[in-house]
Design a protein around this nucleic acid. Sequence first.
DNA 1: ATGGTAGCGTAGCTA
Length: 264
Amino acid sequence: MRIATWNINSVRLRVDLVTRLLDEAAPDLLCLQETKCEDGKFPREPFIERGYTHIALSGMRTYHGVAILSRLPLEASEIRHWCGKEDCRHVLVRLPNGVEVHNVYVPAGGDIPDPEANEKFRHKLAFVGEMTAWWPDVRRAEQPMILVGDLNIAPLENDVWSHRQLLDVVSHTPVEVEKLTAMQASLGWVDAVRHFVPADQKLYTWWSYRARDWAASDRGRRLDHIWVTPPLAPALQGARVLREARGWLPKPSDHVPVLVDLDL
DNA sequence: ATGGTAGCGTAGCTA
């Protein structure tokens, strides 16, 4: 089974890039974030045509939005809300093989890394904290589960272009990294990508639109993740970050797809 | 130290 995650930054604007990924990488499931699209306006047809007939949506106008496109049947799907907001950041599905897939879009957190001064940063920390407490409450580490999405945190030193220079930049601050690490520990989640790429190797999934030349400066961050619970770790077959998609024309997303293969 | 770009929706918010 191949699963992919991609922050698409408007699914309607980039529907042709999504179909390109489906055609070239042929994932069984594709989890999208930042669809920025109400469910009734979601462009289902190009995906259905390609066999992705099972679609779970949690979308809204203008902001956020998550979606799961699947060519495997979905036995159940559910939308979850966090921090008392209905802001379309989490949809989950159950597959026929019993695996549960969670697609999450963690709040970006604004620019100021101070929860007192910045409500967005406070929301980000609260979001991850709430979810961390929730996992052991409702699920067990023995259940086969996959968590994917734009977690908006780059936890390791080599998940950013400069650990030292990003220590006080939202996405890589110690307080965020601690929060994400605590969530990972909550059910013993295994980082499926770092399972294959050594921690001393730089790895990014996002490059800012603001760089003059994203590839030349290469100031990236690894914000997009795929985690699995311990029972799925032995099934991990490989992982890929599709860096070349950052250059897909005419209008690339600032994030690239992340893919993991499992022997399931 | 600062400003740089992008999407939505048509101003200003979010990233």
